[in-house]
């Protein structure tokens, strides 16, 4: 009986140790978490940045870049550069992302490497491992009435899509 207990505990301990060592959060190098926005600086109108979300940490806000880019990127302009991430080991396999960054905003995302497909990858891929969004919808073509997005400040509003919508463009 003692041997049974020993075998069971050793097995479980081994499993836990192995899995813990494999459990650190995968990092996608070079790309920040999708913001491409540097913080700091301007506030909006006199009342300061408005609605905090739960746990808003920084008092400052930023509206981000100066350009208002629409539609597709064809080739790089002077402000743009590519950033190629290292191969990141995500839970679904190796992924490598390449970004086109313009004025601190990510304007294009390409997937250079995806996990190869066992049938399990395919099965979970239908839910979890997402395909990249292939269509980018130009606001002008979508005939929308309003835009929902991360809260912009008054300054940010000017660069936002909502401006165009509000102007009836």
């Amino acid at each position: 009986m003692r041997r049974v207990i020993l075998a069971v505990t050793a097995t479980i301990a081994g499993l836990v140790a192995l899995l813990s060592f494999k459990s650190h959060v995968p990092a996608i190098a070079a790309a920040t978490s999708g913001t491409g926005v540097s913080s700091g600086g301007t506030s909006g109108s006199g009342s300061g940045s408005g609605s905090g979300a739960s746990g808003s940490g920084s008092g400052g806000s930023s509206s981000g870049g100066q350009g208002f880019a629409t539609g597709k990127q064809t080739g790089l302009t002077a402000n743009e550069h590519t950033v190629t991430g290292n191969v990141a080991n995500t839970i679904y396999g190796p992924v490598q992302i390449q970004l086109v960054v313009k004025d601190n905003k990510i304007v294009k995302v390409s997937v250079l490497q995806q996990p190869s497909n066992t049938i399990h990858d395919i099965q979970i891929g239908q839910f979890a491992f997402p395909r990249l969004i292939a269509e980018t919808l130009a606001a002008q073509n979508a005939k929308i009435d309003s835009v929902s997005g991360a809260t912009y400040t008054s300054g940010g509003y000017i660069q936002s899509l909502q401006t165009a919508v509000d102007k009836g463009i």
Partner: peptide, 22 residues
Amino acid sequence: WWHTTPDVSGLGGWLTGAGEIL
């Protein structure tokens, strides 16, 4: 197993990882 496994995360990842090792 170590060399052929990417990072493990989440309950599903742990369960599957343990199942694979065993």
